[in-house]
Every structure is written in C-alpha cells, then in structure tokens.
Design a protein around this nucleic acid. Structure first.
Lengths: 304, 304
DNA sequence: AGGCATTGGTAAAAGAAATTGACCTGTTCG
DNA sequence: CGAACAGGTCAATTTCTTTTACCAATGCCT
C-alpha cells in the first residue's frame, strides 16, 4: 500500500476551486459568477490559501487582480489535481457502467412484463449491461444480489433504507380465453363465473374472494380451484382455455390486445399497495440504477 | 487560458482526504487516527463521496471494510491529485525562496548593524537570497518595495496590517573618541559635556535634550551643534574626535569593544518605542520572511 | 473635472458544513 | 459466552462558508 501523504501541508481543498477559477479569469467577480458564489466568498477563499502557503497569489493592479509569480507557479499543479479527480470520477462511472445492472423480480413480472421491455431499454442505453433474475414466490428485495427490484408492496418500504418508485396499481381482474368465454355464455353473470374452473395462486388465494367481494357478491366457489404457484402458470392455463385467471397487474396487455385473452367482466378490484421499482436508498443515484428507473418510469407514463 | 473545469462533477474535496486514508488503511478508525478525527467523521466523509458519485466505495466484510472495485478504481486518481497539490505547494515554496528577500532599513542600521549580520544569516541559510536597501531618513515601512523592514517605532504598528517583532530598545547614550574624552577630562561632568561639540541629527535634535533631562540636568548647550543628517555620519565624526554623538541603539558595540569609541557617561536614556522588524501581516508566514525574522530574533537573544 | 459604474476588500451575521459524543449492532477471539 | 473491537447512526455542537452591507480605489464617460 502506498505511503502516507503529508496532509498537513495541503492547503484548504475547498478553497482551491476559488483559486483555480480566480486565476483562470484573473478576476474575483468572474470566478464568483462561475462558481455561483458572491465575490467576498472567493476573496476569502483566496486569502485562506495565501495564508496557508504564506505566499501572495494575487496582486492588485489598478482595479483588477493579477496572478503573482507564485500564483502562476501554483496554478498548473492545482489544475492537474482537479483534472485527475475528474478523470477518476469518470473512470468510476465508466467502471460502474461496465458492471451489469442486476434486476430482480417475480417470475410473472419477469416473463410477462420485463421480458418485453428490457430489450427496449438496452437498445436505448447500449452502454448498460443487465442481468435479469427471477426469484421465488415469497420474496423480499435482496439488496445483496440485486441492484433493482420490480416488486409489489402493500405499503411503502422503509424510506430510510430503500428508494421506492411506484409504477402501477395492484389491480385485479379476471381473464380467460375467448373459447371459454363463449362456453360461459355471451353475457356472463358473477354466479356463472363462479361455476367455472378458477385458477388460483397458492399464496394469493384470497384474491378471488377480494375480487368477488368488491364486485358485490359473496364468493362461494362451485368448482374446485386450479391451484398453481405463479400467475405465469395461471395465465398459461387461461390461454389454453382451462379456466379463468385473476391478473394483478399489467401482465396481459399483449394478450388482450391480440384477443388471445378476454375479460369476461370489466370490473377491476383495486387493492392497496402497488407494483414499483425498489433499490437501496444509498444506491439511488447510481448512474445505471437511476437510468433504469427513469427509463421505466417514463415508459410506464408513456408506453410509446 | 485553460478552459473551464466541470466543478459540478467534483466530489466534496474535503472528504477526499478521508477516502484516501480509509482506502490506504482499509480501516475507518485508522484513517480517523491518522487525520486526528473521530471515526464517525471519516464514516461520514466516505458516505458523502459515495453519495456524490452514486457508487459504493467500501463494503463491510466481517467487522472490517474493504474497498470495492469502484473504490480501487478511484483511489489512484485521488492519490495523484493530492500528490500534484503537494508538489505545487513545494514548487511555490521553492520559488518563494528563489526570489530575493527584500530588506529595508535606515542608513545607520544598515551600515552599523545589518551589514555585519546579514552575511552570517546568509551563511546560515544559503538557500535564501537577499537584497538590502537603505532609505531616506524619514521613512515608513514600504510594503511594496520591501518584504521586511528594520525600523524604529514609537508605538506598535497597526496589528491589522503589520506583523511587528521588537528587537531592542531605543536607548540613548553619548559616545566619543578616547582622545576627546581625554581632552574633556578624566572624570567628566554633565556640564563639561555640554561644552563639547555635540553632534546632532536634524530629525532628532530633541534627543540630546531628552538625554540630559533624563540624566538630571537642564540642557543648555554652550557650543553650537554639529548638525548632520544621519547617525552614521555623526558616528564618523565621533570616531574622528570631532565631537560627541548620541547613539540610539546597538550601533556601536563593535567600536566600544575595540576601544575606538568610549562612553563618557554610563547613563542611558531609554525612550518609548523600540527597534524591530516589520512585515505585512499577510506575509508573516512567508518562509523567507519567517526564517529571517526568526534568525534575527534568535541572534539578538543570543548573539553567539 | 466630476459623476458613475466597476472591481476588490472588510466585517458581522446568517447559514451550512463538518465533527463529536453517546449509543447501537454485529463480528471475532479466547 | 463475554470482552474487545470495527463500524454505523443520530442529535448536538462546533467550525467553516457564505452572504449582506458597506467602503475605498480605479477608470470610464460625459
């Protein structure tokens, strides 16, 4: 490891910005303007450095200032220090971009939402790499193995730890194949729907109850559930005409648009909470993460 | 002139010290110790930079911290920035030493005090160059053309503008040649002295009066003054036996030691104020100036 | 010349930081 | 298991920065 630096000899670093700008402009006021400060601030910063070095850096010439010889000697070193720092910042950002952005979400959101949008995102930002990983059904955002998560949250995640950007509502509505809808009848009733094979998800059995309740009926299933473990499977079944699935987000837009799935009822049960993007609070300004979140937010607002 | 730097992208400069030390030690606490701070300070500095860059720089590994890849990428740039600054500070100091130190004083102090000491000083500090300039009788320290002045001040110069180091008292005592003393008589009286040709300086005629008064007599000169414009000339006259001169500082030590001059009376009239070194307050930490003042102070305290 | 805009410097006050102290959590080691 | 240790957190303090007014000096323009 490198040896200790003699920090004691360093002038006040913050004031160096003022010196740099003042030297470049040969003007206290112009330097102040550039740095969005007032001229006494720059004046003071310069005096701080002069005091620290025990050397005069500027001389008053008429009503202007002129760098002294010492000032001219010092300038290139300060300049190159700043340039080195800027290079460092750039290098870190380049490096940060090189590492793939790790996105995690549930199976269904991955298959039926992200799978279609991630390629567009990557096309818009070819400098960013991305790994998409899918995780078990019951899952909390895992900030060790992921940078961003697309998750459903009932409330708002602890703002002290997480940055949370809601994307869309947790809206429940049933879907089925056009064939099944015909079988049920052209103008189905809630009671009629209850007699169809309903596809339910282990962990969200209560959703059917919630939907029927919000639609104004007591839910009394006439036929056993088809129990599956993820919505993706439920939808597959619905697509195959095996039953009616209950969708909890914008995961069937494409199928509805193409007519592969239809909505037997218009009723939507809006549940508390929402789908959104989550990341560690202290990572929210990470360039890749911010880019991803911004792009997805804009995409949802205006699906272009 | 060089182009504008993008300061907005710079991380908080002050905190970079903390990052540098923390990276070097791979330890928050050790960094804190090195910088004479407490560990929360370093912790905070590191987090500041992480926030500014939107990147994690350290990862907790067990109870220690380890630089992340980003931290390792950033470090060399920060390091070289600091090194550049340190070089700059050195260059300025070297340069400051290259410029001759401009010392000003009155004719007599120059001839009879500095002329003997400056060579010793230059010998002790061969890296320092020096120009000694002598100025008119009535003279205030001129901070445009001089770095340091050896001057007599009745009070203390405005401490807001000047750095003032008293060196010795303004002590008046008469001297003459051994020949003249013999002529006056072996055990002279004040009245007898008054009958000798007294050498006075235009601008300090009142000094003789002050001396006789403090010696306990009313000054009533019996013989016209020999009026000259500087003490140096007065002393030359005294050396030649032409009269009695009144010395106002340690300007005849050598002549007294060798016996070329003698003091007809032991009485010394100490006047208010003193001789001392003066420089601009904002220059007092200038390396050459500080070195000069320190050396002279030590020399007066212990003439070695 | 004389008035006026411009440039810096100065000092006190306000405002924004960094830093500390006290406390907490988790890890390691005997 | 408990003591020693490494870091993190938060509020309170202290320390810097910056600003707001004000001044003096310079140069420009009638």
């Amino acid at each position: 490891m490198s040896s200790k630096l003699e920090f004691r000899k360093l002038p006040p670093l913050k004031a160096l910005k003022g010196f740099e700008a003042a030297t470049r402009h040969q003007s206290i006021r112009d330097a102040a303007t550039e740095l969005c400060l007032t001229h006494p601030a720059i004046s003071h910063q310069v005096q701080l450095i002069e005091g620290a070095l025990g050397v005069q850096l500027f001389a008053q010439e008429g009503r202007h200032i002129v760098s002294t010889e010492e000032g001219r000697v010092l300038y290139p070193y300060v300049r190159s220090a700043f340039e080195s720092l800027l290079e460092g910042v750039e290098a870190v950002h380049r490096h940060a971009l090189d590492k793939p952005l790790r996105v995690q979400t549930y199976v269904t959101a991955s298959i039926r939402w992200l799978a279609r949008r991630v390629p567009q995102f990557l096309h818009a930002h070819p400098e960013i790499k991305l790994t998409l990983s899918t995780c078990a059904v019951e899952w909390d955002f895992d900030d060790i193995h992921a940078d961003v998560g697309l998750v459903y949250c009932e409330g708002v995640p602890d703002p002290a730890k997480f940055h949370w950007v809601p994307l869309f509502e947790y809206a429940l509505f049933p879907v089925c194949s056009p064939g099944l809808l015909q079988k049920i009848g052209p103008d189905p009733s809630l009671a009629g729907l209850m007699q169809q094979p309903l596809v339910a998800i282990y962990t969200e059995v209560q959703n059917w109850d919630a939907w029927f309740t919000s639609a104004g009926t007591v839910f009394e299933p006439k036929v056993p559930y088809l129990m599956v473990d993820t919505l993706a499977v439920a939808l597959e079944m619905a697509l195959n005409g095996e039953g009616v699935a209950l969708v909890n987000g914008p995961f069937v837009d494409q199928d509805l648009a193409t007519g592969r799935l239809v909505r037997p009822f218009d009723h939507v049960a809006t549940c508390p909470g929402s789908w959104g993007l989550i990341c560690r609070k202290d990572m929210k300004d990470n360039l890749r993460i911010r880019t991803f979140i911004d792009w997805m937010t804009a995409h949802v607002a205006n699906p272009g």
